[in-house]
Amino acid sequence: MKDTAINVLKILEENPGPVSGEHIAEHLGVTRSAVWKQIRELRRLGYKISSSRAQGYCLEATTSRLLPYEIHKRLRTRFIGKQIRYFDRTASTSWIGKQLASETDPEKLHGMVIIAEEQTGGVGRLGRAWVSPAGGIWITIVLKPRIPIDHLFMITMAGSIAIARAIRKEYGLSALIKWPNDIFVGDKKVGGLLLELAAEADAVHYGLLGIGIDANISLADLPPNLKDTVTSLEAEVGHEVDRVALLVRVLREFELRYQQLEDGEYDSIIREWKSLSLTLDQRVAIRTINKTFEGEAIDIDSHGALIIRRDNGKIERVIAGDCFQL
């Protein structure tokens, strides 16, 4: 959104009643034609603006889009989300993050949030397609971690906690974390995360934390294979949710936990993750590249591995794989 459009919008926001195009033009030092052009752009972006020859323009409703301007109005963070890149539609916010990190010093990108209203090539864990239609929250957070390499996996834990806490605080839903990186409401998935690291030897160049949340997604529009396992916040609460408010809450909650990681408060993160776990103390089936087995999920260790007590009493440590509740 261009500066002129933002300035027009600010004038409308500051005035509860109609404002003439002439007044706006004089205030901004532009022509009335330029004001009309920006009004059309604001309407295209989803702002509901009425107009009349006698009285002028009046802002009746804000947009539902995740525009940087709307996010920054509410965001109170130190570094997460201070920089935002916004796209109507893109293949993948992760791909954009990789491109930016290859062209710019990742230190300068630390905390940047890349947002897409829709992804056409979203990718989840193990390279699986991530359905990302309009109405969801599809973001990538660019990070230059100052966290010991053996604790970088906890960035995903911090993100999982942030999403679960945000959903609980905004909507009163009992969101829980399913190991390793899914967010559930009831017995259905509502969100997920993916951490990608660019590293060599002991040096981490940058990290990309991808987050996807099914906010205002119509379940009828989902592929048939997902309808029994996926839900949306809109479906759970019975009405559209304020995506800007939710995203702002997620970013605040994540920055809080990320700072805990930078301060070495690893035990606090692990305790909070356990308190929100859907997986622990449950009977599960585990499928890894090499084997499949069942047992009880009894713990996670200090490296994020899931600890399983198999039916024969043997203890298994699962670093990566699929986990299914039984």
Rank of each mutant, 00 (worst) to 15 (best):
D221Q: 11
D221F: 09
L222P: 10
L222K: 10
L222G: 06
L222C: 13
L222V: 14
L222F: 12
P223D: 05
P223I: 09
P223K: 07
P224N: 13
P224L: 05
P224S: 09
P224T: 03
P224K: 14
P224V: 12
P224M: 11
N225I: 10
N225C: 13
N225V: 13
N225G: 10
N225L: 14
N225P: 08
L226W: 08
L226P: 09
L226G: 03
K227L: 05
K227G: 10
K227Y: 11
K227I: 09
D228E: 14
D228Q: 10
D228K: 13
D228V: 11
D228R: 12
T229W: 10
T229P: 15
T229V: 09
V230S: 14
V230M: 08
V230Q: 12
T231L: 04
S232V: 06
S232F: 04
S232K: 05
S232W: 01
S232E: 02
L233C: 09
L233D: 06
L233E: 08
L233P: 11
E234F: 05
E234T: 02
E234P: 05
A235H: 14
A235M: 14
A235N: 08
E236M: 06
E236T: 01
E236Y: 06
V237I: 15
V237S: 01
V237T: 09
G238F: 02
G238C: 02
H239Y: 09
H239N: 15
H239R: 12
H239K: 15
H239C: 06
H239P: 05
E240T: 06
E240W: 05
E240L: 11
E240K: 15
E240M: 13
V241G: 04
V241I: 09
V241D: 04
V241C: 05
V241M: 07
V241F: 05
D242W: 07
D242C: 12
D242I: 02
R243F: 01
V244T: 09
V244Q: 02
A245V: 08
A245F: 01
A245S: 14
A245D: 08
A245H: 01
A245P: 01
A245M: 10
L246Q: 03
L246W: 04
L247K: 01
L247S: 01
L247W: 11
L247G: 04
L247D: 09
L247N: 00
V248W: 00
V248Y: 02
R249M: 10
V250L: 03
V250E: 02
V250R: 02
V250Q: 01
V250W: 03
V250A: 00
L251H: 05
L251N: 07
L251Q: 00
L251M: 13
L251K: 12
L251T: 00
L251V: 01
R252D: 11
R252E: 12
R252I: 01
R252H: 10
R252N: 13
R252T: 09
R252K: 14
E253W: 02
E253F: 03
E253L: 08
F254P: 13
F254K: 13
E255L: 04
E255R: 08
E255S: 06
L256E: 15
L256D: 07
L256V: 14
R257W: 13
R257D: 07
R257G: 07
R257H: 15
